[in-house]
Write a protein that binds this DNA or RNA. Structure first.
Lengths: 201, 201
DNA sequence: GTTTCGGCATGACAGTTGTCACGGCGAGCG
DNA sequence: CGCTCGCCGTGACAACTGTCATGCCGAAAC
């Protein structure tokens, strides 16, 4: 039997995925987590062969959970599961030690296939996503630019950002201006949208 | 047997929900739609007792599909299913003729229960959502304000909005200013964020 | 029939934002 | 070492944004 840990914040989807997996016969869901910080303790307790992690989880992202899992249970394979094909996520997920990366857009039959492949040591990435990831490349933003842009995402003003990051307003505007140019945007708002679409935020 | 139509854009989630429902024994999924505009034709063909509609669907929202379904198959009950508890959605969904409104946060067991209740003529709304909907009330924005705010959501400038809605720039700024005040925001970006959170966009 | 409200518009104003030029500091590199 | 690059800052300027006062129009409400 393949022992699977399931991390997904929406209970209904989590329950449905469990039903789907257990229809396979040779798969059993040994643990269910709704938050990122529940993953490692639960994995220690249940010793799964594979952890299926949603990338967007409360209590820290699935990426953090994947890295933590890699530390404490190196034997456990990690498959990331996510809604949007943000290409930036793929690189970050693989860097965090994930063995597979699936979209929720994929057909249901593919899930069990992916789990078996990953258990055999293969890396499984949704093909169109892999392509996109190669095309887009990694984020062109420096760390500071990302921070400033992230702070601007919620609608904060320049003054708000400068206060929260302990920078001068002029510097904040410079970083934003740089990010706007790199992303081909015309306003900070547009830059935020583009960065989010690409998974760079 | 209860005949169910399933509309959900993410194939994996759709397949998983189907597996969950069919575990019940007395429920059969007779149709699966990935887009809003597939719902009515598919329903005509498959004659379901209940349609389970995600609110966020490509090809028009689930709200539109619900209203169209109410027109062409009045016998068919409608249950909306959504990710976020945007209170504004509840009112709009009920106005569109939905009989139930569930969150994907709800426990998996609740889904079948809700379907059976709705079939018996009851209205089923997730209790915490109903409360929030009453607290928040409907959107305070006029139609024009909503349109302008929606156009601003993607990062468009005042000039862009005025062009796409055939208004003067001054008028756009007035509508935005009004929306910003009504929402208690300080910038258009913040107003967009607040309106989205409340389901008013 | 007068009042109220939403929509549309103009003009003016202060404040914010995006850009540019310029300089300084520290880290990595040939 | 000199060079580049990221980071931080300043000052200045044009453009954009948010607000306000004021006005006109049509529809709904009293």
């Amino acid at each position: 039997m393949i022992r699977v840990l399931l991390a997904e914040d929406q209970a209904l989807v989590r329950g449905a995925l469990k039903a789907l997996l257990e229809m396979e016969g040779d798969i059993v869901v040994v643990g269910e987590a709704a938050r990122a910080d529940e993953v490692v303790p639960l994995a220690r307790e249940t010793q799964p062969h594979v952890a299926l992690l949603d990338i967007e989880l409360p209590g820290g992202s699935g990426l953090i959970a994947a890295a933590a899992l890699r530390e404490s249970l190196p034997e456990c394979r990690v498959v990331m599961l996510t809604t949007f094909g943000r290409p930036g996520y793929v690189q970050r997920a693989l860097a965090a030690g994930a063995h597979g990366f699936l979209l929720k857009d994929a057909p249901a039959a593919e899930l069990a296939v992916a789990i078996r492949r990953v258990l055999q040591g293969q890396r499984v990435v949704a093909p169109d996503l892999a392509l996109m990831a190669l095309q887009e490349g990694p984020s062109p933003l420096t760390q500071r630019e990302s921070e400033v842009l992230a702070a601007a995402a919620g609608g904060a003003t320049t003054a708000d950002i400068s206060a929260s990051l302990h920078l001068s307003e002029g510097t904040v505007r410079n970083h934003l201006s740089s990010a706007i140019q790199k992303l081909g945007a015309r306003t900070r708002t547009e830059a935020v949208r583009i960065a989010k679409e690409r998974g760079w935020l």
